[in-house]
Design a protein around this nucleic acid. Structure first.
Lengths: 187, 187
DNA sequence: GTCTATATTAAGATAGAC
DNA sequence: GTCTATCTTAATATAGAC
């Protein structure tokens, strides 16, 4: 089997247990592979498994979020498409964000740079849509951050309340929020 | 020494390494206590340490957030006081939220109910301030959620970018955002 | 209340047969 | 490419002296 075969299992395990909690025993059980076989596919051990998952997520970002943000249509339409993809990725608010999980705990030191890069690319892509839509460059950058903040925060709250509805509400409101004319956040 | 003495060390360790990553060896080193002494203070081991920290955080919420939300002054003033306290708690955006950390990884199953309770109390307290201020009850509940979402999301982003400014920007904007008259999030 | 010493279990990782 | 068996290290936890 190609090592790509095991990515869905790895994503599910790291989401559920985190970096430290997803032990090789759990990974072995979930994939049906013995520990030695896991090291055949991932000689670098668990860190290489996470790197492989991050490669996949980077690709997913490119082929889903960045593609729809660069697609035909007005800003509102393109942002709605992004939200549809995000809703799939996070299973309607029932699954946490792997990037956020990798920022928590002892994995942070190892994977921080990669997560940082994912966030920056995502924020810039949203900001560019808004700039094309006529929004001031600085405000667009803040709105890009606001989008990531709303997604991440609502995922945390949905996890905390064990209720996907905060995420779904935010996802539904987000496109119109980002495209609104005036800043309602003047200091 | 009273076991309360060790709470600041525990908070720092769980914030930095998470539940799984904060090993007894690290805790022993940070506190200067041997492992056996740690079990003298916390017979239930690491889980009892986390429970002790959650007791402290629940108290902190009562004596800081709930107190200032029930204090004298208009809604905007009280929400600004809340934000000041939050800014201290999260060290101006440089420290992650322990509740969020406990929702990630294998700790979630153990402490989810307690974190859930913390979130609910906090959201309700914010909503009540807004209801007193004349905001519709349902909208106030959503605004309470929005506050927690903005805080949690901005802490994640500040961690991800290694830059406290997203948190500080959100904290500064939050009171006026919550008190705004019209919902700019109509569907 | 803190220590040393140790028990027990599980984790990450590898050797080598098939 | 997968396995069994094993190694090494580290984690949680306890016994018992001081």
């Amino acid at each position: 089997m190609l090592k790509e075969t095991y990515i869905p299992y790895l994503i599910r395990l790291f989401r559920q247990y985190g970096y430290d909690g997803a032990t090789l025993s759990k990974i072995s059980e979930a994939t049906g592979l013995g520990k030695a076989s896991l090291y055949h596919h991932f000689p670098g051990g668990k860190d290489e498994m996470v790197e492989t998952v991050l490669d996949f997520l980077q690709q997913w970002l490119d082929q889903n979020i960045l593609v729809v943000l660069a697609s035909q249509g007005d800003a509102l339409t393109r942002l709605r498409r992004m939200c549809d993809r995000l809703s799939e990725l996070y299973e309607q608010g029932n699954q946490p964000c792997l990037s956020a999980i990798l920022l928590m705990g002892s994995a942070r030191g190892i994977f921080h740079n990669r997560v940082n890069a994912l966030f920056r690319v995502w924020i810039d892509a949203i900001a560019n849509v808004l700039i094309e839509d006529g929004i001031d460059e600085e405000l667009a950058k803040y709105r890009g951050e606001d989008a990531v903040i709303a997604i991440q925060g609502s995922l945390i709250l949905s996890q905390g309340l064990n209720d996907p509805s905060p995420f779904m509400r935010i996802i539904q409101q987000l496109p119109i929020q980002l495209c609104r004319e005036k800043s309602n956040s003047s200091s």
